[in-house]
């Protein structure tokens, strides 16, 4: 289980997240919607533990342990993984190296080959990671690394952005495998938190819990499909008014 309690976060002194509360149970997939700049990526990066994201208040608990001050690599080893929206190019470090590093001691050439085949990246294994990759190739490479890591909590930052329709279906399939969607909820070990800007990925990945983030605050929660329909009809502007009203009613 992931529990985020009253979390406030600043980046380089500027407050981005305010009093965020969120709980993801084992086996659940949650979806975070919201306009650009609302703080969605900040929340994911903070859960992962990037040092630039300073927790000014609140706590993050994962598997019952307070990880608020835990270094990022320890969080990864504890079972948190992230798919980056725009990962860096690392010259000289091959895609294969990243997959093997993600698998750690379980890595074998056969497993690497299987994952590469599954993500349609066999020809990319010997290439420098992310160097000259298209948008879709980057997303598939990120999914390949996460499938290698097998995290208990997968943080997916806009997994469909820059991906063509054919590849969105593949990305959706890979996410479903990662989050064990074929297994009944009670037997799953994986949790997911997915940021989506367009909502396209929801056509392929089933999720029941959705949130809207506005100005660093979770302002709405409910069925992600219903929220998305509302947003498509009224835009985030209506959400802002609704959130404003809610705040004043409270």
């Amino acid at each position: 289980m992931l529990e985020i309690k009253n979390l406030s976060v600043a980046v380089e002194g500027k407050k981005i997240l305010h009093n965020v509360n969120l709980t993801i149970g084992t086996g659940e997939t949650h979806v975070l919607l919201g306009p650009n700049g609302s703080g969605k990526t900040t929340l994911l990066m903070t859960i992962m533990g990037f040092p630039k994201y300073q927790v000014t208040d609140g706590n993050i608990l994962f598997k019952g342990e307070d990880i608020t001050k835990m270094p990022m690599d320890e969080r990864a080893r504890l079972g948190i993984g992230i798919s980056f929206q725009r990962p860096p190019v690392v010259r000289g470090v091959k895609t294969k190296d990243m997959v093997m590093a993600s698998m750690k001691d379980k890595s074998t050439p056969e497993l690497v080959a299987t994952l590469a085949n599954k993500t349609d990246l066999t020809e990319f294994l010997e290439r420098d990671i992310n160097y000259g990759f298209s948008g879709g190739e980057i997303k598939r490479s990120e999914m390949m690394q996460l499938l290698a890591q097998k995290p208990d909590l997968a943080l997916l930052d806009e997994p469909e952005s820059g991906v063509d329709l054919e590849n969105i279906a593949l990305i959706g399939k890979l996410i479903n495998e990662l989050l064990e969607k074929d297994s009944p909820m009670h037997s799953r070990n994986s949790m997911g938190l997915i940021i989506t800007h367009t909502g396209h990925i929801l056509e392929y990945v089933n999720a029941r819990n959705g949130y809207i983030m506005l100005d660093g605050t979770i302002s709405c929660m409910g069925d992600p499909h219903e929220i998305l329909t509302e947003i498509k009809a009224c835009g985030y502007g209506q959400c802002a008014k609704c959130a404003f009203r809610s705040a004043h009613h409270v």
């Binding site: 990022m72 690599d73 990864a76 993984g81 860096p88 470090v93 990243m98 590093a101 890591q149």
Partner: peptide, 13 residues
């Protein structure tokens, strides 16, 4: 940014 990318996969600094 590159160091952190690798650390997010579980490597130490």
């Amino acid at each position: 940014e590159e160091v952190e990318y690798l650390m997010a996969r579980g490597m130490t600094r």
